[in-house]
Amino acid sequence: MENESEYKDLYKMLPKNRETRQEDRRKLALKDQKLERSKLQDHKRLFLKEFLIAERVKEDSGKKVLFQNKYNFPFSLQFSEWLKEKPDNLNRWFLVPCPKGQRCFIVACNNITEVYNKEGKRIFYFHSKLPGDGVLRNEFSILDCIFCRELKRFFVLDVVCLGNYNLQHCDATFRRFWLKSRLDENMNYNDSDSSYTFILIDWVDFEDEEAIKMNFYKYPHYAENFPLLDGFLFYHKDASYTFGVTPLVGWLFCFMIPEVLGYEINAIYSLEKPADYVNYLFYINEFDKNQDKKIRERRSIIKSEFKEETDVLEETEKIFEKERFVLENYYDIHSSEKQKHFEYTEVDSIHMIE
C-alpha cells in the first residue's frame, strides 16, 4: 500500500484486521508462543550465542549509532495495542502503571552501557554495574525502560536478557520474578559513579482486587507527582517478550479505565479527558489518525533530507570526476612531453657519438 507507514510499530496502534476480536488474536498469539518455546527447548542459549558472536561494526563518531548496524543482530522493543476489549480472563493479567518519559532499551555489553530509543538509535552511553558493564564484563543485558531525563532515572519495565540469561521466550510472570530477584539482590547496580539509577516499575496482579482498585485511585503515583502517570499497560501473564506489536500487551490512558474495564478511577484522572471527548473508541480512532499524519510528515522530511544529501553527493561526485579528468589529461600531456624530450635527447646523443 502506497501510504503505509514504515514506522507504525513505533506507537500504540490498532490491529490491521479490525474485524478480528482481540481475544481471538490473543489466543492465537499464546498458541504460537507455546509452539515456539517447545522448538527452543534444545536451543535455549541461541539468542545469547548469536548476540555475542555478532560482528561489531566499527563506530563512526560522526554518525548516529544504530543498534542493528553496530551489533548486526535483529531486535525491537515490545509494543502494545490499545486495549479495546476487556479480556475474558482478566485474572491472567498484570496491571503496569507507567510514568511519562522516553521509551528506550538499555544494552550493557563490552564494558559499556548504551541507551537506545525505540527506533534503535543510540541516545547516549554511560557506565553502570549491570551485567555486561562494571565487574561482570563477560556478560550482557538488555532492559526495556522508560527514561526520566530530569531525574536521571530509568524505570525498568521489562527484561529481555540479564546476566547472559535469555528471557525472551520466558512468560511474563517468570520474567518479572527474575528481574525483581536480581535487582533486589544487586542493589549496587545503582551505585555507579554515573548517577543514573534503575527503579523497577510495579506490576500488580489482577487477582489482587484490592491492590488493583488502590492503583486506579492512587494519586499521585510518584512522590511530588513527578514524573506524571502516563497511563496503564496490561501484560498477559503467559506472554513471551515479542519483538514488535502484540495483542498480549494492552494500553489505556487513565480516563479510559471506567469505560473499558468498569473500574472507578480517581476523579483527577477524569480531568485529563480532551474537551471534545466522545468515548474511548472515537478517541482511539482520532489519536491514530493524528499519529499517522505525524508519521507521514516525518517520513516526508526524512525523504527530503535524504534527497538533499543525495543531490550533494551527486554534485560532489561530478566535481571529483572533473578533477580526475583534468588530472588524467595533465599527466597524459606531461608524460607525452617527457617522452618527446627523451626521444630528442636520445637522437642528439646518437649524433654526438657518430
Rank of each mutant, 00 (worst) to 15 (best):
Y283A: 11
S80C: 05
C109P: 01
S304W: 06
K213N: 13
P87L: 07
D171C: 15
N166R: 05
Y7A: 07
D32N: 14
I257K: 06
E50M: 14
A211I: 01
E6Y: 09
Y222G: 01
K64C: 05
P220T: 04
L40N: 13
I333L: 06
T242V: 12
Y330P: 07
K294V: 09
E36Y: 07
M256E: 12
E4Y: 12
T173Y: 10
L248W: 10
R153H: 03
V249C: 05
L248A: 03
H169A: 12
V245T: 13
D348C: 03
S194W: 04
I53P: 01
K27R: 05
N166L: 10
L261Q: 05
V57L: 07
L35D: 13
P99F: 04
K70L: 15
F234N: 01
P131Q: 03
K49Y: 09
P220K: 09
T246D: 06
V135K: 15
L143M: 06
L248K: 02
D205T: 04
L46V: 02
K322C: 06
K39I: 02
F282V: 02
E286Y: 01
K340P: 03
A275Y: 12
N69S: 14
Y7F: 14
F320N: 11
D202H: 05
D133M: 03
K27N: 09
K273D: 07
E150R: 12
S240T: 00
I302Y: 08
K12R: 09
K34R: 11
E328F: 11
I212N: 06
K273M: 15
N72Y: 05
I265T: 06
F174E: 08
D288F: 08
W251F: 15
W82E: 00
L52P: 06
R182P: 04
G120I: 06
V65P: 09
E343Y: 01
A172V: 09
V160A: 07
F174W: 15
R26N: 14
F174Y: 15
F234Q: 00
S128M: 08
T242G: 01
K293R: 01
N89C: 08
